[in-house]
Simulated scan of single mutants.
Amino acid sequence: MKWRHSRHEISDDEQIARYAYVLGNVPASVADSAYAAAFQRLPAAQREQIVSELRKQLPAGSQEAVPDDPEAFATLMRDLHARQAIVTVPGAADLAAAFVTSPPIVVYFTSGAGSVSIDQQPPWLHELAGHETAPIDGGRISHHKGPDVLGI
């Protein structure tokens, strides 16, 4: 019998926290791919809104650098000002959710280097990676007594 947690709505703050956690635990190359995939997964209107709001948040010199192209957006997100600003724009939680559930992140935690440490990751990441958590012995403890060496 498998126990499943009931599905519940994840708050925007939790989505942002999950994004920050994943971002801090994946290599830059995986993050770049995840940003591009997440940005591409959003509807065009939402991408435009995020780009528009991000332009308002960034310092004067880099406002023009906010792109509409997923690959260029990923490159922009290497900048710490952009990363700090992105979590404050409307639609940030949707981008964060798309980032966390993007194929590059899932692959990293299912078959990439992140799969090695999956047991030390939070339960929501186990669920994302399709990793079943179980007790150490998986419930198959042997109750067979060993040899009676003491004659008891």
Score class of each variant (00 low, 15 high):
F109R: 09
A82G: 02
P103M: 06
I141C: 15
W124R: 14
L80I: 05
A20C: 07
V100G: 03
P104N: 03
D137T: 10
P103G: 09
S62Y: 01
R55V: 08
E9H: 11
H131W: 10
R47Y: 04
R78A: 06
T101C: 05
Q121W: 01
A93D: 01
V51W: 11
V30I: 13
I86K: 11
A31Q: 03
L95C: 05
S11W: 05
L95W: 07
V87Q: 08
R4Q: 02
E48V: 09
Y35Q: 04
Q40P: 00
D79A: 02
E9K: 10
V149E: 04
D13Y: 00
V51M: 12
D68R: 14
V116E: 15
L80G: 05
F73G: 07
A85V: 04
F109G: 05
Q40F: 09
V66F: 07
A96C: 07
M77C: 07
D12F: 06
L80H: 03
N25H: 15
Y21R: 03
V30N: 12
A74I: 15
T75F: 00
S62R: 12
S6V: 12
V107E: 12
E71T: 13
Y108N: 03
I86Y: 02
Q46H: 09
P70D: 03
G151E: 14
H143F: 15
R55M: 10
S52D: 05
D13W: 00
F73H: 13
D94M: 11
A28R: 15
S52N: 01
P90Q: 01
P43G: 06
A82D: 04
I141F: 15
A45W: 01
I152C: 03
A96M: 05
A93M: 03
V149Y: 04
R55P: 13
F99G: 04
W124Q: 13
P70Y: 05
V30Q: 11
Q120V: 10
R41M: 10
E64C: 10
G112R: 10
A85S: 08
V66N: 09
T75D: 13
V26R: 06
H143I: 12
F39Q: 06
H8I: 04
S142E: 15
A72H: 14
F99L: 07
I118D: 09
V149P: 02
K56M: 09
A82L: 05
P90E: 02
A134T: 11
L54S: 07
A60K: 08
I50F: 02
G139R: 13
Y35P: 01
H81L: 00
M1H: 06
T101N: 07
S111A: 09
A93Y: 03
I86W: 04
F109P: 12
E132L: 08
P147N: 15
A44C: 00
R78I: 01
G61R: 15
E53Y: 15
E71Y: 14
A96D: 04
Q121P: 00
E127T: 13
G61M: 14
V106P: 10
E53C: 15
Q121Y: 03
A134E: 14
L54M: 15
A97R: 14
